[in-house]
Design a protein around this nucleic acid. Sequence first.
DNA 1: TTGTAGGCGTTATCAC
DNA 2: GTGATAACGCCTACAA
Lengths: 344, 344
Amino acid sequence: MATSRISIKDVALRASVSHSTVSRALSNSALVKTETRDRIQRLAREMGYSPDAQARSLVQGRTQTIGVVVTTITDPFIAELVQAIESAAYLHGYTVILASSSAEPDRELAAVEMLRSKRVDGVIVTSSRVGTLYQEHLNRLAAPVVLVNSHSQLGGRYTFAIGVDNWHGACRATEHLISLGHRRVAYISGPADHHDDVDRMGGYQDALGQAGIELAPELVVAGTGRADGGEAAVPKMMALAQPPSAVLCYNDMTAIGLLRAARRGGLSIPDDLAVVGFDDIPLASYVRPALTTIRQPTAQMGAQALQMVLDLLPDGEPGQRAVSDVVVQGELVVRESSTTIQEG
Amino acid sequence: MATSRISIKDVALRASVSHSTVSRALSNSALVKTETRDRIQRLAREMGYSPDAQARSLVQGRTQTIGVVVTTITDPFIAELVQAIESAAYLHGYTVILASSSAEPDRELAAVEMLRSKRVDGVIVTSSRVGTLYQEHLNRLAAPVVLVNSHSQLGGRYTFAIGVDNWHGACRATEHLISLGHRRVAYISGPADHHDDVDRMGGYQDALGQAGIELAPELVVAGTGRADGGEAAVPKMMALAQPPSAVLCYNDMTAIGLLRAARRGGLSIPDDLAVVGFDDIPLASYVRPALTTIRQPTAQMGAQALQMVLDLLPDGEPGQRAVSDVVVQGELVVRESSTTIQEG
DNA sequence: TTGTAGGCGTTATCAC
DNA sequence: GTGATAACGCCTACAA
């Protein structure tokens, strides 16, 4: 129960002033006598006044709210991203509305429409797959949109992206394996149509080429981006006339699935097969053997995504100046799955 | 850019009707001629009209929005909870505002104040620790509050709770260990002041008593609720004159820390020490040996928490009828850490 | 320094 | 059936 709705009018009545004076007093306007201002503020507090954000937004034209669209908050990578976004938003006086799409087109559309109605000032999208259709909805948003780890296909005037350098990360990972003496390095791919996957495979191939190692098409195995993809890949790879001695996986979950299948199959990691993932999800350091991987600077990406949105706001706080797409670098984290040298 | 702000007035102008008619037409009121209604709806779509949720809320007195307060969305248990809440909210036409408190009192207060200003229709709190001070803030909210896995100390008229049966879960877990032949069963506790911990320890003790096993105070070791607590507990337990042959941990993270330390210490799990956790976080099935634990019906709890909030709303959709505190039962999930019988 | 009078975009209550 | 008109709670010229 507690405090019923109390408006500036109620406060005005009790303070024997007009509601405009209350409004000014509460926003610390210099136009009101210090004395009355203090009196009004005290009174408002006593009465349990709470400003109505909606009414304010209605007249001011902005809601101090940003929408965050995710496939599922259950994904640890996305969760960390959202945490960073929420945290940064809080520091700037913004609020986060969460919308999960479950990767279903209907819900994606519904989410965007909802955010439009709520008049969010900006939107951050972390669905790694942003189809043309989806993008079209986003463009109707009349608010700046920042994509995290996904590529804008249409490139609306107000749509920008921030993402990890997939190519470079995969390159580093592959070089790491090569530096350990591996010559036959496999790649387990992710979901078929993913841009990420294309780029990561590109880095893998280029690193091999750079080292003068010829590409072996049979060493590229189709995965799913989930653990099952990694599990299924093991028998395929091991059935080859010349099995690989090392493998780069599209992501950590693929690698973890692979670890699991390798264990069942009696393969010793990293001795029989060195394994590297991508992402550095929390699980990566907990599995045995702990996973070597490319760490995405998740928290940084989240915070920066928010800053980009703010920079795109009409008059908003200018973090620096103009906004452009941002590419961040991942970091190679060496653990047990690629080398027998123990670590944390 | 896209569509600028278009209001019902704009539509009214183009349709040569009053804005009231447009309002009625858009809400499918029977009071408007079918023909004009269709015409207006078509026009509104063409013009890219999007209703302003804030203006609507202002007059209707409810926002179709609920606030979710978490310590950190990064916790997999909480993430799953939030996912379920968001999903259920969507189905009921509600939107979720996310606020993370980082367990800092300042931010807790700020979060509550923000939700108050945003005029959320209800609030779900998943901070496992709800202090008296915090509760006081919550009571000022003038909106129903549902606590997940935490105990309301003041028990405001509008504050209810849903949580897992800690006592029963710990009881089941302990009985499981006893049924495997263990007589010396240890307990590693969680954060000192947690209600959860008290209840779980109670279940542990009662199960032992029930089996006619005398309680050995030295077998209760202080933990932290985090991995470090489990790690630190291993040397303490093993230094005992009669070390335990099994251990129940306050939660999974404690158990995982224990697993790690045991591994380093050359202890064989479950042969030297059988281990059971609590929660069944995703990690539990991925660590080696996979963790036996008590699974919390997370998704169900999230969905039900939302339903409780809805039921508490003034006129809101009545799921069933009166609301009361809810206790759900966890489920024993047997994996490798307590028995050598292989599984999953 | 303060008060009056709009108006933001809706819905709702009246008349017509 | 439809159109004025008045709220909802706030901000902000414009007056005083």
